[in-house]
C-alpha cells in the first residue's frame, strides 16, 4: 500500500458517498445517469467475485464489500425509491454500444481463458467506459449541478491517483498489470475534458456547470 493507492481509494469512496448523499438529501436523482450507476454496480459485481477465491487483506475485503453495497444502494435510490425524479428522457446513451465491444475484448485479451478471469477483465474494460452515459447526459442537457461535478471530479481524481500508484508499484515492486494500466489510462483521458471544464467553470464560477 502506497500513498497514491490509499488516496485513490479514498477519492473513489468520497465520490460514491457524495453521489449517494446528494440523492438522499435532495430526494432526487435529477441529472444523474442511472445507466452509468448500473454499469458501475456491474463492474464491482464482476470484479469482486475474487472475494470468494483470493484473500488479500482485511482492508481489501472491507473496501470491496463497501463499494458493492454503496453501488447497489445508489441504483436502488435511482430506480426504486426516487424513480419519479429519474430523468430517463435524457439518459438515452445506448449501453449496448459499450457492452458488446467490452464483452468481445474481454474474451480476446485476458490473463487466462477462464470464467473468473474473463469477468475480471470485463470489469476492468467496462469501468473504463462506464461513466460515458453520465458524460453524455451532461452534454445532452448542457449542464450539471455542482454536486454532480464534484462527484465526477473525485472519480477522475481516483483514476489519476491510480496511475501514480502504478508508476510507484512498477518502480518499487516490479508490478505491472498491462490490462489494468492500459484501460486505466484510457479511462483517465475521458476525464481530461471534464477536468478542464470543472476548473474553469465550477471552481472559478457559479454553482452549475453549463456547457458553451
Amino acid at each position: 500500500m502506497n500513498i497514491f493507492r490509499l488516496a485513490g481509494d479514498v477519492s473513489h469512496l468520497v465520490a460514491i458517498i457524495i453521489l449517494l448523499l446528494k440523492i438522499w438529501r435532495s430526494k432526487s436523482c435529477a441529472g444523474i445517469s442511472g445507466k452509468s450507476q448500473v454499469l458501475f454496480a456491474l463492474v464491482f459485481s464482476t470484479r469482486y467475485l475474487d472475494l470468494f477465491t483470493v484473500f488479500v487483506s482485511v482492508y481489501n475485503v472491507v473496501m470491496k464489500v463497501v463499494f458493492l453495497a454503496l453501488s447497489y444502494a445508489t441504483v436502488y435510490l435511482i430506480y426504486m425509491r426516487f424513480r419519479n425524479s429519474y430523468d430517463s428522457e435524457n439518459d438515452t446513451f445506448r449501453v449496448e454500444f459499450l457492452l458488446v465491444p467490452v464483452i468481445g475484448l474481454s474474451f480476446l485479451e485476458n490473463y487466462a481463458f477462464t470464467p473468473l478471469e474473463i469477468l475480471w477483465t470485463f470489469s476492468i474494460f467496462l469501468e473504463a467506459v462506464a461513466i460515458m452515459p453520465q458524460l453524455f447526459m451532461i452534454t445532452k442537457t448542457g449542464e450539471a449541478e455542482s454536486i454532480t461535478t464534484h462527484y465526477l471530479f473525485f472519480l477522475g481524481l481516483y483514476r489519476a491517483l491510480y496511475i501514480a500508484n502504478w508508476v510507484w508499484r512498477y518502480h518499487m515492486e516490479g508490478f505491472f498489470d498491462q490490462i489494468a494500466v492500459v484501460s486505466g489510462v484510457v479511462q483517465t483521458i475521458f476525464y481530461c475534458d471534464f477536468f478542464y471544464l470543472y476548473v474553469t467553470r465550477v471552481l472559478r464560477g457559479k454553482g452549475k456547470m453549463s456547457l458553451p
Partner: peptide, 10 residues
C-alpha cells in the same frame, strides 16, 4: 506474486 497484487487493487 503478481496474481495477489492484481487482486489487491480495487
Amino acid at each position: 506474486n503478481q496474481e495477489l497484487l492484481r487482486h489487491d487493487e480495487l
